[in-house]
């Protein structure tokens, strides 16, 4: 079976530094695939290459079997690749509901309508409420996002990514900076995502990783050190030594 998302021999250099070093990786349909590795292993660069925010110096990215290496992030999003950001990146001066409605408008392709008020599209508001509920933000729909707590903004990150109705969801450290309670809620939220979505996850919190992932890839210096089931990774000597040894 073709993987949902695949990288083939990706290379990315920043000056003399090779951040992604002929890296190949496949994400199976419906997988919960975590990418872990020490800081500087090239996780976020890999994400940006997969999402199209960066262009590789060599190699290919395939989405549902199709070569999307030349496609920008917007084109990839339209073919079903959605991402969250490591740093909260919502539309800060809109309400939660407006954020989600806007995301839905983009995904639904109504954005080019300029002759009719936004309010005409009632179904968007309904769908936005649904998504707000699914990420635990149903009580704050009318709050300006700037005034939301950090953790809630983090939840909105997932909501926005979900609004694009993705086939593949890239989550960049969804629990970064969250309190233990918020982290637990986020773990629950991600675990509850429909299995039709392939979830690729960068995460530092090992409880979250081992609680969610059914497959784990360990990156080190821009290369895949190891890919396998969680037990295999947990038991791997090299991972223990290189990564999890230090209080992980």
């Amino acid at each position: 079976m073709t993987p949902s998302l695949e990288a083939r021999s990706l290379v990315k250099r920043f000056g003399a530094l090779t951040v992604t070093d002929s890296l190949s990786i496949g994400f199976e349909r419906g997988a919960r695939h975590a990418v872990i590795g020490p800081n500087g292993a090239g996780k976020t660069t890999l994400f940006n290459l997969l999402a199209g925010a960066l262009r590789p110096d060599a190699g290919q990215v395939l989405l549902e079997g199709e070569d999307v290496t030349a496609a920008g992030p917007d084109a990839r999003a339209r073919t079903g690749l959605s991402r969250s950001f490591q740093r909260n990146n919502p539309f800060p001066d809109m309400t939660v509901a407006e954020n989600l409605e806007t995301a839905l408008a983009i995904a639904g392709g109504v954005g080019r309508v300029f002759w009719r008020g936004f309010g005409h599209y009632r179904s968007l508001a309904e769908k936005a409420r649904e998504i707000a509920g699914s990420v635990g933000l149903n009580m704050v729909g009318d709050t300006i996002v700037r005034q939301l707590s950090y953790g809630m903004q983090r939840q909105l990150e997932i909501g926005l990514a979900l609004a694009a109705a993705p086939k593949v969801l890239l989550l960049d450290e969804p629990t970064a900076g969250m309190s233990p309670e918020e982290t637990e809620a986020m773990r629950h939220l991600i675990a509850g995502l429909p299995r039709s979505i392939t979830v690729v996850l960068i995460e530092h919190d090992m409880d979250v990783v081992f609680g969610i992932a059914d497959r784990i890839t360990v990156l080190d210096q821009g290369r895949v050190l190891l890919t396998g089931a969680p037990e295999k990774v947990r038991d791997s000597a090299i991972v223990r030594e290189r990564y999890m040894g230090s209080g992980g």
């Binding site: 917007d74 990146n89 919502p90 539309f91 809109m94 995301a103 983009i106 694009a164």
Partner: peptide, 10 residues
């Protein structure tokens, strides 16, 4: 408000 987000949404 956020060009990169708009782009990431398609």
């Amino acid at each position: 408000q956020s060009e990169s987000r708009a782009r990431a949404l398609g």
